[in-house]
Nucleic acid binder design. Structure first.
Ligand code: MN
Ligand code: MN
Ligand code: ZN
Ligand code: ZN
Lengths: 142, 142
DNA sequence: ATTTAACATATAATGATTCTAAACTTGAAG
DNA sequence: CTTCAAGTTTAGAATCATTATATGTTAAAT
């Protein structure tokens, strides 16, 4: 199978041994058409659902997700306390956050343009910019 | 003392009894010229430092901060895992985040202007927009 | 002054994440 | 093909921020 081989080399290139667990997680996360946003809790449930042919320990899921992040294959996104999202889109980009469904949607960088722009404090320079647009159902009372 | 009386009415108006602990915390947080960004850990240390004349239980600090937030006197800001900031500036505004010193700086709303702007998904409307500009020391290697 | 709901507090519980230490796997070398 | 060391997985323990509990205290209305 081609895809599996590709993933194995992707992992090796990142200095990660392509173990069974890592390849399975990489398949699940990276063999997709669209960006995938998830929490560790999410991922754990999806992978270890009953009747699944293969189980991965929660510690391994943590280890792997962090290893993938360190290797640049995942981005971490902070939205709210106790909700740590990871993102398979590692490009610099922005998000809609739907508070009703706890869902993230990508906004590509070129869809947002900052007109005015503040000067960073002396001795500091801008590393990156994150825009989160919180969205609600229409006609929501505040 | 005028300031104390003001705080007591501010609390009463919010439906909060002006207890000794709340008044003390309100003084510490709100009798300032500038915006104050803090974590609960921060606040607890500042209030309960040794040789301080009055101690407040950690649970009370949590309760009070959450009560102040609910009453609209504090805003909560999510920057990274395990770092929950609160903000005495409750207006809609943005931030610089200095990753080196773990420090937030306000950017007033009118200092940033979004030129291009994406359309929210169908049935959803924008509640608010949060921009975080991560900053680094100059000449930092990535 | 009495009364009662609101509040503060010490302590226990929770829950997400990290650590530990033992067993297993991978890939390189012989 | 074996051997071997470093890397990896795992169950379970530990950690740590936060929240819940249960008891004593206080604000403020009557
Ligand atoms: Mn993490
Ligand atoms: Mn909180
Ligand atoms: Zn994304
Ligand atoms: Zn602020």
């Amino acid at each position: 199978m081609d895809k599996k081989k590709d993933l194995a080399s992707k992992l090796r290139t990142s200095g990660l041994r392509p173990t069974k667990q890592r390849v399975l997680l990489a398949e699940f996360l990276f063999n997709r058409d669209k960006t995938f946003h998830f929490t560790v809790e999410n991922l754990n449930k999806a992978i270890n659902k009953k009747n699944s042919d293969y189980k991965i320990a929660l510690a391994t899921i943590y280890n792997t997700v962090h290893a993938f992040k360190k290797a640049g294959h995942l981005k971490e996104i902070f939205i709210k306390e106790g909700k740590n999202y990871f993102d398979t889109n590692t490009s610099s980009h922005h998000h809609f956050y739907d508070e009703v469904n706890n869902e993230l949607t990508d906004i590509e960088n070129n869809k947002i343009e900052l007109k005015k722009f503040p000067t960073p404090p002396k001795g500091k320079s801008i590393k990156d910019v994150n825009v989160i647009i919180n969205i609600d159902n229409d006609n929501q009372k505040h």
